[in-house]
Design a binder for these strands. Structure first.
Lengths: 110, 110
DNA sequence: TAGTAGTACCTTGACAATCTAGGTAGTGAG
DNA sequence: CTCACTACCTAGATTGTCAAGGTACTACTA
């Protein structure tokens, strides 16, 4: 239940990560920052949600990881979208549109 | 994760129920039907989700139940919104707007 | 050179919402 | 008298997220 100040809409995390990576390869930590920034501080991805999600997605083959060095000279794992991930993103976006539209329809009913 | 054909957006069920009841008092079974109908078959509320949600919400004081007889002459539990429930609905709608907007913002980023 | 703030990763355990899959019982139509 | 449908209910499993902890490295500043 979205207690009036949830940080995420449940079920959208993977889509948001895929979307962030579709613009640019990023390391894990940066993905969280990016989502927070683009959403203007509304969406906050806790690390305890982020990293498990990244493993799930790598296991599924949507993303691929590679160790590198961050902007700040620190060891960091960079993720990039795979072809399968790009397809998956499309699916999730469609599904989100359908469902969000449906929710709006119910809220607009009178 | 919204497997491309989830029935609900997680976390929206209580809001949808509150909204349905804000238009008209209904019995449990009818709430599910109504949501399905208004959303044009996109949102499907499983009974295993619906009834537990109704108990939670009654415990919270958002809704009140009363036994009665349905349109089909069957024993049925009718729910109506309380003042607290009406307030709660407002809160959840605001919260949903904020979060859905944020998600759209991320999806629109480039 | 010691301390601190920040970056970047990771894990464990708990919790809450939803779904699956069962069940009961009554009504009304054929 | 059977079948489809209405209407309620519950148990158990799964899943996603969060809270709260942790490690280790860099860069700054005092």
């Amino acid at each position: 239940m979205p207690t009036p100040d949830t940080k995420l809409l449940q079920g959208t995390l993977e889509m948001l990560i895929l979307k962030a990576l579709s613009l640019q390869s990023l390391h894990g930590y940066a993905i969280g920052q990016r989502i927070k920034q683009i959403s203007e501080d509304v969406l906050k991805v806790e690390e305890g949600s982020l990293y498990p999600a990244l493993y799930r997605m790598e296991r599924q083959g949507w993303i691929k990881a590679e160790w590198g060095i961050s902007e700040n000279n620190l060891k960091a794992k960079f993720y990039k979208l795979t072809r399968a991930g790009r397809k998956r993103l499309e699916l999730e976006e469609e599904s989100w549109q359908r469902l969000a539209d449906a929710v709006f329809k119910v809220l607009a009913a009178s």
